[in-house]
Nucleic acid binder design. Structure first.
Length: 264
DNA sequence: ATGCCTATTATTAATAGA
């Protein structure tokens, strides 16, 4: 079972790239962020024609998240994080698929930092961390994936010195991520590739992709009830080189199916 | 130190992204 996360940076603006990638890669589940489309402008028909059923939470201009499942309807279990009913941003949606609870999140960017946007980022992080703890307490297979907008360590970026004034790399952001993972989550890509430079985002600026000046900010966190099934993880870097592409690349994991697990 | 580039919304400039 292949599960991917992809910050599309405009689901309509980059629809051709999304459809081409879906056709090539054939993931079973996809979490999308930055739809940048209101609820009624989600390209449901095009995605259905590609073989995927979807749930989504749109928003005009910014944010927006979706979960796609190949050949089946995702069973929605939540939209919006608990803790602030007034929060107007569409940044969290959750579904049950094949007995796995999948949370798709788009954590706030937080720039410029410090400032009110950074405060919002840390507040949102707190809500996520609190909610994540309740998920772990249920002792079920859970995957929290998406654009965390956090560079976890110096090793997760091309040149740490150029990110020190950025909300993605602020000590508070990294500490919040560290605390979240320390609840008992497995950072899937780092787990399987502890010594590899892995990037999921490259600036449109500065010729960043050809220079491989990237950062790792799209993450998969696995609960202990699903982590043992992790068999592969990676980034579809090629997609970042396509014409009219997002500044993120699709990031994915592969899980052993339960029936196979019993054999090994 | 700053802007670089790109998408969206709304009119050619502002805002946000990271």
């Amino acid at each position: 079972m292949k599960i991917a996360t992809y910050n599309v940076n405009g689901v309509n603006g980059h629809l051709p790239v999304l459809l081409r990638w879906l056709a090539d890669f054939q993931p079973d589940v996809v979490c999308l962020q930055e739809l940048k489309a209101p609820q009624e402008k989600f390209p449901e028909t095009a995605i259905l024609n590609a073989g995927y059923h979807a749930i989504w939470h749109g928003q005009k201009s910014w944010n927006g998240v979706a979960i796609l499942a190949k050949g089946q309807q995702p069973k929605e279990t939540r939209r919006g994080l608990p803790g602030d009913p007034e929060d107007p941003h569409s940044r969290y949606i959750e579904a049950e698929i094949n007995g796995i609870l999948i949370g798709c999140l788009y954590l706030p960017n937080g720039n410029p930092a410090p400032g009110p946007k950074f405060d919002y980022k840390l507040q949102w992080f707190k809500r996520l961390t609190k909610y994540a703890k309740t998920l772990l307490a249920r002792e079920i297979p859970v995957i929290l994936t998406g654009d965390y907008n956090v560079i976890p360590t110096e090793f997760d970026c091309h040149k740490p010195s150029s990110w020190v004034d950025d909300a993605l790399f602020f000590p508070e952001s990294r500490e919040a991520y560290r605390k979240l993972v320390a609840q008992g989550w497995t950072d899937a890509l780092r787990e399987l590739h502890p010594n590899e430079k892995i990037f999921t985002y490259w600036d449109y600026f500065r010729n960043a992709f050809p220079r491989n000046a990237g950062i790792r900010i799209d993450h998969f966190l696995l609960s202990p009830q699903i982590a043992p099934q992790l068999i592969a993880a990676g980034v579809d870097r090629d997609v970042r080189s396509w014409d009219k592409t997002s500044d993120h690349a699709p990031t994915w994991i592969e899980l052993k199916s339960k029936t196979h697990r019993k054999k090994s």
